[in-house]
Design a protein around this nucleic acid. Structure first.
Length: 154
DNA sequence: GCCAACGTTGGC
DNA sequence: GCCAACGTTGGC
């Protein structure tokens, strides 16, 4: 089982919104970055778990854990001209963008803040992709060691 | 709202 | 293939 971190702006989709979704499951759609797309399409497997990260908000940080319940398949929002994430260049026969389905595992009692994660950037989280300067990936890998360490902060 | 950092686009 | 211009991300 591999681990990941998925970013979302809580104003558009928060961990509480996932908690209220049918079967607490949703398609992780709208990713429009090739590196992240490749992970969604090729690397992320059923049973993998991911941190649910809240970005661009008052308290950025990790809000909980989700599990992958369905592996990569085409992102339908790319085909819908009325959709905010529409991409005219994504063809149904040769889709450009992909999603996985995720299900809420649990919400943390508190946010593990970005600030707090940074305090370990020199050591345990030395190579944590989230903390890399200028990092803008919305889907990124997390090593087993990093995963276990972050859980000790909870 | 600001701005640094980054990815993408398109002219050449 | 280079690189300037532009749009987006995301912390502050």
């Amino acid at each position: 089982m591999n681990h990941w971190l998925f970013k979302s702006e809580p104003d558009s989709f928060s961990i509480d919104a996932l908690g209220k979704a049918p079967r607490q499951t949703t398609a992780w759609d709208g990713v429009r970055n090739y590196q992240a797309r490749n992970m969604l399409r090729d690397s992320i497997k059923k049973g993998d778990q991911a941190f649910f990260y809240h970005s661009s908000c008052e308290v950025p940080g990790i809000a909980g854990i989700v599990a992958v319940v369905k592996e990569g398949y085409p992102d339908k929002t790319a085909f819908d001209p009325g959709h905010h994430h529409y991409d005219a260049d994504s063809d149904e026969h040769e889709p450009r963008w992909f999603v996985v389905d995720v299900k809420l595992v649990r919400k943390f009692d508190r946010i593990i803040t970005l600030d707090e994660l940074r305090r370990h950037a020199g050591k345990a989280l030395k190579d944590f992709v989230l903390l890399r300067r200028g990092n803008r990936l919305s889907v990124m890998p997390v090593t087993n060691k990093e995963w276990e360490f972050v859980l000790t902060l909870e």
